[in-house]
């Protein structure tokens, strides 16, 4: 059984890696074979070349984007979960604030981005604000769902043991809601990255979004692709990190037991 699961795990890593390599090889062959101009679609070799010509610059701007994104995401997690707790605890907030949040969620947050520049200037502020705003909604909504889905008999059990409301929250309701909260955070972290890039598009002189925008101006297509590949890699790493954290925090959770 151990042998089988190990084989399966190796396959689980090998197949996506092989797929990605195959795509890049096909891309390289097509671009060189069909003589596609670099400005339209650069070959993978040209993208790697663009990355390697200024590695420090890409790293520095990439870290800038990451730091902004992580601050926005962290704020979204803290505010989102606290607000979800309030919404579930206070009946009045559920019929007012929660309805408002659900309604605002349908507004395209990207469209609000220019407002933040007016309010917060062109530094870290607007990017963090947009990353926060866009990641905040799924976290609040999923956390509320999780906190409300605690089975009634479980709370009855705790009451029959004369547990205080606070003790019930820590020992029953929060652990029950955690899988749902994690689901919201996994969606939120990808969205926070989107929000940061949008912020950098709107007004910035730093970050991967800024690289993409200036490269567009000078038709350096390979740079745009390089920045996007970095963003894609960052997205995968962040999602994977969240999944690893989830496995660590909720080893009991059903979705963790199935081999995916």
């Amino acid at each position: 059984m151990n042998e089988i699961s190990r084989t399966r795990r190796i396959w689980g890593l090998l197949t996506p890696a092989t797929t990605i390599i195959a795509v890049f090889v096909a891309w390289q062959l097509l671009v060189t074979g069909l003589h596609v101009r670099e400005v339209i679609l650069p070959a993978p070799s040209e993208i790697i070349q663009a990355l390697l010509s200024q590695p420090a610059w890409f790293a520095q701007e990439g870290l800038y984007t990451m730091a902004t994104m992580l601050v926005g995401f962290a704020l979204a997690v803290i505010v989102g979960i606290l607000l979800a707790i309030l919404i579930v605890e206070v009946k009045l907030l559920e019929s007012t604030l929660y309805v408002l949040i659900a309604a605002l969620n349908s507004v395209p947050k990207v469209a609000i981005a220019p407002l933040f520049v007016i309010w917060l200037g062109t530094g870290y502020g607007p990017k963090i604000a947009i990353a926060f705003l866009i990641a905040f909604f799924p976290i609040v909504i999923d956390s509320v769902l999780g906190l409300k889905s605690v089975p009634k008999d479980m709370l009855d059990l705790a009451s029959s043991m004369r547990a205080s409301q606070l003790a019930q929250f820590w020992r029953i309701r929060l652990p029950t809601a955690l899988p749902s909260i994690f689901a919201g955070m996994k969606v939120g972290i990808s969205l926070a990255l989107v929000g940061t890039i949008v912020g950098e598009f709107v007004a910035s002189d730093h970050g991967l979004g800024y690289i993409i925008l200036t490269a567009q101006g000078t038709f350096e297509t390979a740079q745009i692709f390089a920045a996007n590949i970095l963003l894609g890699a960052a997205g995968i790493v962040l999602f994977w990190a969240m999944s690893a954290l989830e496995r660590r925090c909720l080893p009991w959770h059903a979705s963790q037991r199935q081999e995916v």
Partner: peptide, 8 residues
């Protein structure tokens, strides 16, 4: 209770 209500 009817359900065992064990905490997973």
């Amino acid at each position: 209770f009817q359900r065992d209500v064990l905490l997973d």
